[in-house]
Amino acid sequence: MNKYWIAVSGASAFAYAVKLFGASVPESWLAHPRITRINIFIPVALLTALVAVNTLADKTKLVIDHRSAGIAAAITLLIAKAPFPVVVLGAAITSAIIYRIN
């Protein structure tokens, strides 16, 4: 089994386990302000790191390339309150144009 299959099956199994766990445990188990706080913080930190790494990292090098142009477009669109699909499409089109020019 290659790492693609391990990632697909492992991540899927854990995702379902987490969902089922939440639906099954007594409320008092997770109703702690510390848990609530961490639960808000984790997605912020993870998603930010995923944006940064997927935009600026090329293996173990930091680079500014066509992807950065795409993300700049995405930020502009988000500030302009564009809907989700428009943001992704705008980033893709901008990035593709820069890639083809180079």
């Binding site: 997605p43 912020v44 998603l47 930010t48 995923l50 944006v51 997927n54 935009t55 066509h66 992807r67 142009a69 795409g70 993300i71 995405a74 930020i75 988000l78 989700f84 943001v87 992704v88 705008g90 980033a91 893709a92 089109i93 901008t94 990035s95 593709a96 144009i97 890639y99 083809r100």
Partner: peptide, 19 residues
């Protein structure tokens, strides 16, 4: 995928979820 901007679509998707 790069020629169609798909490699920028991934971080843009994360950004959209983060915003």
């Amino acid at each position: 995928p790069s020629a169609w901007g798909l490699d920028a679509a991934v971080p843009a998707a994360f950004l959209g979820l983060l915003w």
